[in-house]
């Protein structure tokens, strides 16, 4: 279905840093980020607010320029907005004036894809996330979870080899979030695309990922890389296992050591 690139490193982030300059001073948002992601890998970036994880996504998407270092996707250096990716934000960013399927087909219109094939694929994608029958609904007629599903379908229409998601489930309630995580994993297993998933939820990161990038705040650095060695397909019950708890504990301890999390009685 997809051309899986033969590179061992599909996405390479090489010594990337990012500074934000305001009138009074310069803030270093990201410092010396080095990260290689394999084709088809599901990588989560987890860290507290202000660790620059969204900035990292903006860099990968080519929406902002790095102050230093370079980013290669499939061997090509990212210098302008990267239109070969699928992108999902925390807000669904659906266009209010388009129905669900028209929102998904926005991609086809801009990219001038074959209408018939694109429509068929859009229907298929919406069905895959359980939205068949809602193709002609306008965004305001859909619930938050349904809207985010539509935005995921939109991101996938053009079969991108790379999907970047910036806290896509952050604004959803817990049950909807669980369901969307399962939906996402199913789609990912069918398409074998590379996913960069940004979240501040430790359990979400462990549940979804092959590998977790733990980031420290201000300036954002990679604190640790953790391989999640759990079988796929992931089941919700796995969240109750000792292995799962060990992973979440490991990450929690990193955040406690960094002072991101504090408990009573700490010095």
């Amino acid at each position: 279905m997809l051309d899986v690139p033969s590179h061992s490193h599909f996405l390479s982030i090489k010594r990337v840093s990012k500074n934000f300059t305001s009138r009074s001073d310069t803030v270093r948002a990201l410092s010396d980020i080095d990260l290689d992601i394999r084709a088809g890998e599901f990588v989560s970036i987890v860290g507290p607010s202000g660790c620059g994880k969204s900035t990292l996504m903006m860099l990968v998407a080519g929406l902002t320029k790095a102050s230093g270092g370079e980013i290669l996707v499939d061997g090509r250096r990212i210098e302008k907005p990267n239109s070969d990716i699928g992108i999902v934000f925390q807000r669904d960013v659906l266009l209010d004036w388009r129905t669900a399927i028209q929102n998904v087909l926005l991609q086809a219109e801009i990219r001038k894809l074959d209408v018939t094939a694109a429509t068929e694929r859009a229907r298929h994608l919406l069905k895959m996330v359980g939205l068949d029958g809602f193709e002609k609904s306008y965004p305001h007629e859909l619930s938050g979870g349904m809207r985010q599903r539509v935005s995921i379908c939109r991101a996938l229409l053009h079969k991108p080899p790379l999907l970047v998601m910036d806290e896509p489930f952050g604004a959803l309630d817990a049950l909807t979030r669980d369901q969307l995580q399962l939906d996402l994993l199913r789609i990912w297993s069918e398409t074998r695309m590379t996913v960069v998933f940004i979240t501040h939820s430790i359990t979400e990161a462990v549940f979804l990922s092959d590998r977790i990038v733990v980031m420290s705040p201000r300036p954002g650095r990679i604190e640790r890389l953790i391989d999640i060695d759990m079988p796929r397909p992931r089941r919700l019950a796995m969240r109750e296992t000792k292995q799962f708890a060990a992973y979440t504990q490991e990450i929690t301890e990193i955040f406690m050591k960094l002072g991101v999390l504090r408990e009573e009685g700490d010095a």
Binding site: H140, L142, G144, M146, A174, T176, Q179
Partner: peptide, 12 residues
């Protein structure tokens, strides 16, 4: 954003 995700909101 209710938890009953798949039930559509009331028609306008």
């Amino acid at each position: 954003m209710t938890s009953a995700d798949l039930s559509p909101p009331a028609p306008p």
